[in-house]
Amino acid sequence: MASAYERRKDPEAVRRALLACAALIAGREGLAAVTVAGVSAAAGVTKGALFHHFANKQALVDAMVDGLMQELDVALDTLIAADPVPRGSFTRAYVHAELTMDDDTTRIWSALISSLTAETQLAAQWHAWLTLRLCRHADTDAGELLEIVRLAADGAWFTSLSAGASTRALDLLAIRGRLIAMTF
Rank of each mutant, 00 (worst) to 15 (best):
E29R: 14
F54P: 01
L72E: 00
D66G: 08
H52K: 09
V39I: 02
A22N: 10
M64D: 06
T35N: 12
H52L: 12
G30P: 08
G30M: 14
K47V: 12
T46A: 15
V74G: 00
L19R: 06
L24V: 05
A43N: 13
L24I: 07
D62A: 10
A37G: 09
A41D: 15
A75F: 05
C21K: 05
L72N: 00
A33H: 07
T35A: 12
V34M: 08
F54D: 00
C21L: 03
V65E: 00
H52R: 14
D73R: 03
L24N: 07
V39K: 02
A43W: 14
V36G: 09
I25W: 10
M64P: 03
V61E: 03
A75T: 12
V61T: 08
G27I: 08
N56E: 14
V36F: 10
S40P: 03
G30T: 09
A32Q: 15
G48N: 12
A41T: 15
Q70E: 10
A23L: 12
N56K: 10
A33M: 06
A59V: 04
R28L: 10
G44K: 07
L31N: 08
A41M: 06
V39W: 02
A75Y: 01
V61H: 06
E29G: 05
R28P: 00
D73G: 04
S40I: 11
A55Q: 04
L19W: 01
D66P: 01
G67T: 01
A37M: 11
I25F: 07
G38D: 09
A41H: 12
M64Q: 02
L50I: 13
V74F: 07
A37Q: 14
Q58L: 01
A37H: 08
A37I: 13
V36W: 07
H53V: 13
G27K: 05
H53W: 09
V45F: 14
L60R: 07
E71L: 05
A43G: 14
L76C: 02
